[in-house]
Computed example of a mutant assay.
Amino acid sequence: MAYQFLNGFKFDNGVQLKNRVVMSPMTTMTSFYNGMVTTDEVNYYASRAGGPGMIITGVANVSASGKGFEGELSVAEDAMIPGLARVARALHKNGTKAVLQIFHAGRKSTTKVLRGDQPVSASAVAAVYPPDSETPRALTNEEIEQIIVDFGEATRRAIAAGFDGVELHGANTYLLQQFFSPNSNQRTDKWGGDRDGRMTFAKAVIASVKAAISKYAQGPFLLGYRISPEEIETPGIRLADSLYFVDQIRDEVSYVHTSMGSYKRTSLNDKTDTTPILAQFAAHTKGHTTLLGIGSVEQPADAEAALAGGADLIAMGREFLREPQWVQKVARGDEASIRTQISPADMDELSIPSVMQVYLTTSFKSVMHFTTDTDKAENYTEQLAPMEGFEKKL
C-alpha cells in the first residue's frame, strides 16, 4: 500500500525531509548530573535514527535555573557542544534530520533539583499538579531578559553542534506556557496582564532564537514551537487562547507541534465542541506554517488518519520506544511484525537506558502497553496523559 506519510516533505525554508514521520521528544533522564551527554543517550538515539524523516530530542535546559529534573540534557554552556554534536551525528543516519528541543522548566522544578535554589516562574503561584508543588519565586525583569538571551545562546550552540533546528518547548506546563497561562502568570507589568501581554515572553524568545539563526546558521534551520492546547485548571489556557496564540506566531516559526495524548482528542473543557483539536489547529496553520500531529499513533492507519485530519507531519513517541524500526518495517511491507506492545524484558535490547526503564515502568506505566500489564490501557482522547505535564501520584 502506498502510504502518504512515506512521501517526502519540504518546509517553507527549504529543509527537506525524506518522509513525514517524526520521532517526538521523550525524556530519557540519562544525561550526566551537569547535563552532559552520555553514551547511553547516544546509543538510544542511534538505534532509532535512519527511519523517521526527523527526530526531536528530549528537552535540554537553556540555563541553570531552567533544569526541571535529574538526568536532563543541557545546552546552557559551550562545554555541552561536543556531546550534543555526538547526538546530532547519531541522528543523521540515512538522512534523518535532527532537532534539539530547548526549554526552561520554570515552576516545574524543585529546590532539590536546583541544588538549593528556589524554582522561578512568571509569578509566585504553585502549580496545581502535582498538588505538593513548590511555590516559585517570581522572576525579575532582568532575569526574564537574561532567559530570553539564554534561548538565543542555546540556539547558537545547537547550530554549532550540527542540529538542523530547535524546538521551543512551550507545552506541558513549562516556563513558556507558564507565562501565557492566566493561572501561573498574574503579573501586571509588560510580561503579564491580558492575553496579549502574556504572549510577550514567548514572542521575545522566538525573536531571540530567530536572531541567532540569522546570525549563525549557514543554511536553512528549523524553528518549531510545541504547544499544549488546553489547561484543565481554572483559570487556565482554553482552546480559543491557544488558537489565538498560533495566529500570532504562525508566520514566525517553521512548524507548530501539538502536545496531546491522542490525535483524536476534542476539547477537554467544552464537551459541546466535537471538532477534533487537530483539525482546529490545521484551520489556523494552513497556508502559514507546518503542523505536527501527535498522540497514540501506533499503526500506519493511525498515521494516515492524522494526516487526513489536518496534520502535515506525524509525530510518534511511545511507539518508537516499542518499535525503533517502525518506518523501515512499513516501507518494506512488514507491518505484521510491528510491535505495539513492549516487554520489560526487551528494553535493554531496544537500547532504552536503564534510568528511563525505571520511570517507564512506574510513572509512565499506564501509557506504555507493557505485555505484563493486566490493567486496561488508558484512553487519552478525553483526558490529559502523564507526558503532557499532568502527574498522577502512584
Rank of each mutant, 00 (worst) to 15 (best):
A202Y: 03
A202S: 13
K203D: 07
K203F: 10
K203I: 13
A204W: 06
I206T: 02
A207M: 05
A207D: 11
S208V: 10
V209Y: 03
K210F: 08
A211L: 15
A211E: 15
I213Q: 01
S214C: 12
K215M: 05
A217G: 09
Q218D: 08
Q218T: 14
F221N: 02
F221R: 06
L223W: 03
Y225M: 11
R226P: 08
R226I: 05
I227Q: 07
P229V: 09
E231Y: 10
E231I: 09
I232V: 13
E233Y: 07
E233W: 08
I237M: 14
R238W: 11
R238K: 12
S242P: 12
L243W: 05
L243S: 06
Y244W: 15
F245Y: 15
D247E: 14
D247M: 10
D247P: 09
Q248A: 15
Q248N: 15
Q248G: 09
Q248I: 09
R250M: 04
R250T: 01
R250K: 06
R250Y: 00
D251V: 00
S254G: 08
Y255I: 03
T258F: 11
T258N: 11
S259Q: 12
S259C: 14
M260W: 03
M260P: 08
T266W: 06
T266K: 12
N269F: 14
K271L: 12
T272I: 01
T272E: 02
T272S: 02
T275P: 09
P276S: 12
I277W: 05
A279P: 04
Q280C: 04
Q280W: 04
F281C: 12
A282D: 09
H284N: 08
T285G: 01
K286I: 01
K286V: 00
G287C: 00
H288E: 06
T290Y: 01
T290M: 00
L292G: 04
G293S: 02
G295P: 12
S296K: 13
V297A: 06
E298H: 05
P300M: 10
A301Y: 09
D302Y: 05
E304F: 01
A305S: 10
A305R: 02
L307K: 00
A311H: 08
A311M: 09
A311W: 04
A311E: 13
D312G: 03
I314L: 04
I314A: 03
G317D: 03
